[in-house]
């Protein structure tokens, strides 16, 4: 269960986010929507544990992410999987190694075969040895999703996963995320401005531009 309490954020004195209080259970598919500048990506980064909010806190299964006791990076990475908007696969590693990198850096106890199982489940096992530069955009997204769920996180976050995709591919991307969340047994939170996909989520959180 992910809870958000009194979270707000400022950049250089400018208020960029005032988040509503939230309680999100495992298995829920939640979408963050709002106009540009409403703080969707900022809230996603806060939920990911990589951006301490200037006010409030986020708790995972009752354990706060930012206030004491301090969580180390591995603790966070094993519990929260993230699919960044630009994916950022490491160009010098194969698809398989990009997934294994996530296991290694998070200190996961899952075995190497887990990465192959996930790549197969997401339909890119034949491309496991290819470098990201040799993959199509869709294949890259599948590898990035595999990387995000390889440690069986409690929360799966995705930032603008359908931006610049046509309708069919946008639908496929959301299907993949739902499937990934199901495989990991995770809560899914997606930040998007894409109106095409909103209706498919159980829960919609609307953000608005905060007052200055």
């Amino acid at each position: 269960m992910l809870t958000v309490r009194s979270v707000a954020h400022r950049y250089g004195g400018r208020r960029v986010l005032v988040a509503p209080d939230l309680t999100l259970a495992a298995g829920v598919h939640c979408v963050l929507v709002g106009p540009s500048g409403s703080g969707k990506s900022t809230l996603l980064n806060i939920l990911a544990g990589i951006l301490p909010p200037t006010a409030g806190d986020v708790a995972l299964q009752g354990e706060p992410l930012y206030t004491a006791p301090a969580r180390d990076d591995r603790w966070r990475a094993r519990r929260i999987g993230v699919v960044p908007q630009r994916l950022h696969l490491l160009a010098s590693l194969s698809a398989r190694d990009n997934v294994r990198l996530a296991q290694y850096l998070a200190g996961s106890d899952s075995d190497d075969a887990e990465s192959d199982r996930l790549l197969a489940a997401l339909g890119v096992e034949a491309r496991a040895d290819a470098r990201p530069g040799e993959l199509s955009a869709g294949e890259q997204q599948r590898v990035a999703i595999a990387r995000a769920i390889v440690n069986r996180p409690q929360v799966l976050l995705a930032d603008e996963p359908t931006s610049s995709l046509d309708d069919d591919n946008a639908r496929t991307a959301i299907d993949l995320l739902f499937e990934a969340a199901r495989m990991a047994g995770a809560l899914l939170v997606v930040a998007t401005h894409d109106a095409r996909v909103r209706a498919r989520f159980d829960r919609t959180v609307e953000l608005s531009r905060p007052p200055p």
């Binding site: 990911a48 990589i50 180390d72 990076d73 591995r74 966070r76 990475a77 094993r78 993230v82 960044p84 950022h88 490491l90 990198l101 996530a102 850096l105 998070a106 200190g107 990387r147």
Partner: peptide, 8 residues
């Protein structure tokens, strides 16, 4: 990305 994936 490595930091995001758990590297301290």
């Amino acid at each position: 990305i490595m930091r995001l994936l758990g590297a301290s």
